[in-house]
Simulated assay, not measured.
Amino acid sequence: MSETITVLLADDEPMLRAGVRAILGSDPGIEVVAEAADGRAAVTLARRRRPDVCLLDIRMPGLDGLGAAAELAREVPGTAVVMLTTFSEDAYVADALGSGAAGFLLKSGDPRELLAGVRAVAEGGAALSPAVARRVIAHLGDGRLGRGIAARARVAELTGREREVLGLVGAGLSNAEIARRLFLVEGTVKTYVSTILARLGFKNRVQAAILAYEAGLVPAS
Rank of each mutant, 00 (worst) to 15 (best):
residue 166 L to V: 12
residue 172 G to W: 00
residue 134 R to E: 13
residue 170 G to S: 11
residue 140 L to N: 05
residue 176 A to F: 01
residue 136 V to T: 13
residue 139 H to W: 09
residue 136 V to N: 00
residue 138 A to V: 06
residue 145 L to D: 12
residue 154 R to Y: 00
residue 143 G to C: 04
residue 135 R to M: 08
residue 156 A to R: 15
residue 172 G to K: 01
residue 176 A to C: 03
residue 136 V to P: 06
residue 134 R to F: 02
residue 162 E to V: 00
residue 156 A to Y: 07
residue 138 A to C: 01
residue 166 L to E: 13
residue 140 L to M: 15
residue 151 A to R: 11
residue 155 V to G: 06
residue 143 G to Q: 04
residue 162 E to T: 00
residue 167 G to A: 04
residue 151 A to T: 12
residue 145 L to Q: 14
residue 161 R to P: 00
residue 164 E to L: 14
residue 148 G to N: 10
residue 151 A to D: 10
residue 156 A to W: 07
residue 172 G to R: 02
residue 165 V to G: 04
residue 151 A to N: 10
residue 169 V to T: 04
residue 131 A to F: 09
residue 175 N to E: 13
residue 172 G to A: 03
residue 175 N to F: 01
residue 168 L to N: 08
residue 154 R to L: 15
residue 136 V to I: 14
residue 145 L to A: 14
residue 133 A to N: 02
residue 160 G to Q: 09
residue 155 V to N: 02
residue 168 L to V: 04
residue 143 G to E: 07
residue 148 G to I: 05
residue 173 L to Q: 14
residue 161 R to I: 07
residue 145 L to V: 14
residue 131 A to T: 15
residue 150 A to M: 11
residue 151 A to P: 10
residue 141 G to I: 01
residue 157 E to W: 01
residue 143 G to P: 07
residue 135 R to A: 12
residue 147 R to K: 09
residue 159 T to N: 01
residue 166 L to D: 14
residue 142 D to F: 00
residue 179 A to E: 09
residue 181 R to W: 06
residue 142 D to Q: 04
residue 161 R to L: 13
residue 171 A to S: 12
residue 179 A to N: 03
residue 132 V to I: 13
residue 168 L to F: 01
residue 177 E to G: 12
residue 134 R to C: 02
residue 131 A to Q: 14
residue 140 L to Y: 01
residue 179 A to C: 04
residue 140 L to V: 05
residue 136 V to L: 09
residue 148 G to V: 08
residue 148 G to F: 02
residue 165 V to S: 10
residue 158 L to A: 13
residue 165 V to N: 06
residue 148 G to T: 15
residue 166 L to K: 09
residue 144 R to C: 08
residue 140 L to H: 07
residue 160 G to K: 03
residue 133 A to T: 06
residue 160 G to E: 14
residue 131 A to C: 06
residue 162 E to P: 09
residue 134 R to I: 05
residue 170 G to E: 12
residue 138 A to G: 04
residue 157 E to Q: 15
residue 140 L to F: 03
residue 132 V to N: 12
residue 155 V to E: 00
residue 157 E to K: 14
residue 176 A to I: 07
residue 177 E to S: 13
residue 177 E to T: 03
residue 142 D to H: 05
residue 166 L to P: 13
residue 165 V to H: 08
residue 140 L to T: 15
residue 150 A to P: 02
residue 174 S to V: 03
residue 169 V to W: 00
residue 141 G to C: 05
residue 158 L to C: 11
residue 133 A to V: 07
residue 146 G to T: 10
residue 164 E to F: 00
residue 165 V to I: 05
residue 152 R to Y: 04
residue 176 A to H: 02
residue 159 T to H: 03
residue 149 I to W: 10
residue 147 R to A: 08
residue 150 A to H: 11
residue 153 A to D: 10
residue 179 A to I: 01
residue 180 R to K: 11
residue 156 A to L: 12
residue 153 A to G: 11
residue 177 E to C: 03
residue 134 R to D: 12
residue 166 L to S: 13
residue 164 E to W: 02
residue 138 A to R: 12
